[in-house]
Design a protein around this nucleic acid. Structure first.
Lengths: 338, 338
DNA sequence: TGGATTTGATAAACCGGTATAGCTCCCGAA
DNA sequence: TTCGGGAGCTATACCGGTTTATCAAATCCA
């Protein structure tokens, strides 16, 4: 017999299908003796539930979805997503829930995917990343009544559950560290302006500037690409009063910036300190190795999975969980200003 | 009415469930007039099939799986997988098949996943990457009777379908290019020795060496990590007769190698030429930018999806499709030997 | 014109589970 | 002695599709 069903187990155990279902799902309705006997037979026959059948009966599919709306070109370089994915999976595997991953071009396509998933009952919930300022996905998901958890930002006035780290504190830590080294002209090469975390980081820099006595602390937004990171760096370093330190919102841009500095003959960290707001193998491959903010991305994903499963189990409560604070890993790219 | 079922459509159209099913799936059994009427009603009610119900009835789940067995740490840096994934999805989206992605630590875990997927009917087929020399997954998948397609290698004496590029020709192109520049001492920093493509590349170098009059052409295997790439480079450059050109099997190792060369004061490309066997944004971020072999990874994934769907539809035929040949993108890291 | 075949549709079984109503038996309390 | 109630289990409906057996009406062919 190739794939046994609970009916097979039932006949073999001399009980009804219902009893087998009760036994296999650990719910009351059968005696301990019978339960054990059924479990043993199921084990012997190496029975596994048919996911579709279970989904149809229990109206849950034991599967969650995650859509990443970024052009594939910019995606792979950042270990961020790979780590996040691993973490999410580790959080899901305990309950043997599977993950559907989709990479799409933009938010419109992403919302389309959510609609399809909801109407086809393909997922029990979804994980959101890259929350924007006035994010249309939040309302859409609420309308679809699809459980969701937001990674890296609050779910819009308590609408969605979330798992987040304190970007503000992290940025303050970086700026304070640079100020303590003696830097007074610090520039911030930020990501896309419509991302919530970009806004929070920009605000943190602006708020800290007067307190730390910074002469100049511009935040310049980009599209997160290496090209724009390089272009902005070139502009910054060509100014008469050029910054003595630059904070980049991603490791890729930081690396691009380092390249520009070298090309222009600006020594790092002698004449320019560089900090990346995201750590990865990239920062360590460089010469000099880049000082960077390290976040436990794996754990981030793991916790997101946990919160999502809780939300699915009990859609009433909205959890906003704060994760461990990121730490600044000091390497060779930062020093007191020349 | 939130989610209409075919029964709802049936009553509204005044026909039976069966007729609706026939109409919606484009199979004979209803007249064109009725079909059109049913389709229109389904459209109006914005009906979508319930994936689990369809899976249960039709015994296919419209979902395929892909497992990547690599530690997450080494994963994210290479855009290879992100592009591959996008390509696979683009190939699947036409038939609106969804993709399950799983990142695991090793092959044993990967095989476990296949067993579970098969027994729970979670996927209709799988896509394999990183084929090893005596790969246990091939036999396992045949035993499970799970349709599969291998990316980047032949599926073991015609056992599994595959989509592959010619690694041998690609490596020959690189070595011939370097030889034409005048290099006679070329080293090859390879990946893990048990990968099939590593073997093919090593063999290509060895075979080409005498014909091109190379004095020395060692292939040194690594674990694909930046650390080993750097270590081997250091060893190579410390030799009395050090190579004038090094070919790296991945872009990450090439970047690490470049770092070592700079650190040791070996100028690139003046005293050392560097080629990466894989292209990505990384190679372009460097100074000098690295000459690299560019492959159309997106298309690779797209074709793999196509072949897999064909294999699922007709498990009898085994397709081995060869994709477009990779091309060498010459940048600043290669020049005639000093 | 009459029997054979095709067309267009229906009703019901089925896929493999879950959920629930109901039945039997046994125990304890009144 | 009777009755209520819970434990343990069975029978059956159900989830939302697909598939098959069946059947009436229309069409074909000689």
């Amino acid at each position: 017999m190739a794939r046994p069903t609970i009916a097979d187990i039932a006949t073999r155990a001399g009980v009804s299908k219902g009893a087998v279902s009760f036994a296999l799902n650990g719910r009351p309705g059968v005696s301990d003796a019978t339960r054990e006997r059924i479990l043993k037979i199921a084990e012997q026959m190496s029975w596994r539930p048919h996911s579709a059948a279970r989904a149809l009966g229990a109206s849950r599919v034991d599967s969650v979805g995650m859509v990443i709306a970024r052009p594939a070109r910019t995606l792979g370089v950042e270990p961020f997503f790979a780590h996040l994915l691993s973490g999410v999976q580790s959080g899901l595997s305990a309950e043997s829930i599977s993950l559907q991953l989709l990479i799409v071009e933009d938010t419109a396509a992403e919302i389309e995917v959510y609609r399809r998933w909801a109407s086809e009952h393909r997922v029990d919930g979804v994980i959101l990343v890259d929350l924007t300022v006035k994010d249309p996905r939040v309302d859409e998901l609420r309308a679809l009544e699809l459980p969701a958890v937001v990674i890296g930002g609050r779910g819009g006035k308590g609408a969605l559950a979330s798992v987040w780290a304190d970007d503000r504190d992290a940025m303050l830590a970086i700026v304070e560290y640079l100020a303590a080294l003696g830097h007074r002209r610090i520039a911030h090469v930020a990501g896309t302006p419509n991302f919530q975390h970009t806004q929070r980081r920009i605000r943190a820099v602006r708020d800290a500037a007067p307190r730390l006595g910074l002469l100049d602390a511009p935040s310049l937004t980009t599209d997160f690409s290496d090209a724009e990171g390089a272009a902005i760096t070139r502009k910054l370093l060509s100014q008469p009063n050029r910054p003595t330190a630059i904070v980049y919102d991603s490791d890729v841009m930081a690396v691009a910036g380092l390249g520009v500095a070298m090309e222009m003959g600006v020594s790092v960290p002698g004449e320019l300190s560089i900090v990346a707001f995201d750590d990865s193998i990239l920062t360590q491959l460089m010469h000099p190795a880049l000082t960077a903010l390290s976040r436990d991305t794996f754990d981030f994903g793991r916790q997101a999975a946990e919160v999502l499963l809780d939300t699915i189990a009990d859609p009433g409560t909205v959890v906003n969980r704060r994760t461990a604070d990121p730490v600044l890993t000091v390497r060779e790219s930062t020093a007191p200003p020349g």
